[in-house]
Amino acid sequence: MDQQTLQRIFYGALGLILLVVLGGGLAAAGWPGAAFALFAFMTLGGGLVCIWERSVVRSAFALMSTFMGIAGLFILLESDFLAMAQILIYVGGILALLLFGVMLTPPDMSERKLGRVLPGLGIVGLAILWVGLKVAATAKWAVQGAPLDGRADGPISSAEAIGVGFLAVDQYVVAFELAAIVLTVALVAAVYIARRRLSDVQPSRTRAGEVG
């Protein structure tokens, strides 16, 4: 099979799966179920495409689908502020950074052939699947989920509640400050690491072969 056919089969299968899970979700839990199915598909499908694709740019855009799906899941979990933050930070920030990374590094076409990694992937996947099934079968969650629609919207998940939680002295102000410090330090460190050194701009002092 050549690359083209594989792509077609893959994306075709993906479409079929979308239809199946949408249908399944609708049938199992009505529209909320369908929404969950859609968002879960966006999440996992994005991840799958990300792994599947040989091009970094495509993978990055596939990842955007993952992030959007997770944001959707957050909405379903009544965490609208988080969902917004997810879209803002991941899609707007991190993904943009990744794309910058893609642009600043040369394209590398020497990815492994799928056939070479597939056995390993299969083993790892089966193992994870097995562990997951076992966990799902034996785990007793301390919290048992209430139905999605059976709970009233409270201030608990609103941006206001989170803001108050962050700033109230008796709640998460330490975590807030910590986060602020971590961000500052990390950004300064990033700037420091990535800054161009004098030797980079003076050709005479760069390594041989780069001057040309």
Partner: peptide
Amino acid sequence: RFGDNGLDGRMFAIFTIILAAAEAAVALA
């Protein structure tokens, strides 16, 4: 969301997002 422990999980999530952002910046560098 399914548990009964205030805002802890969501705060963790926010924290993780912040860390991820920082990590991404440093990692890109």
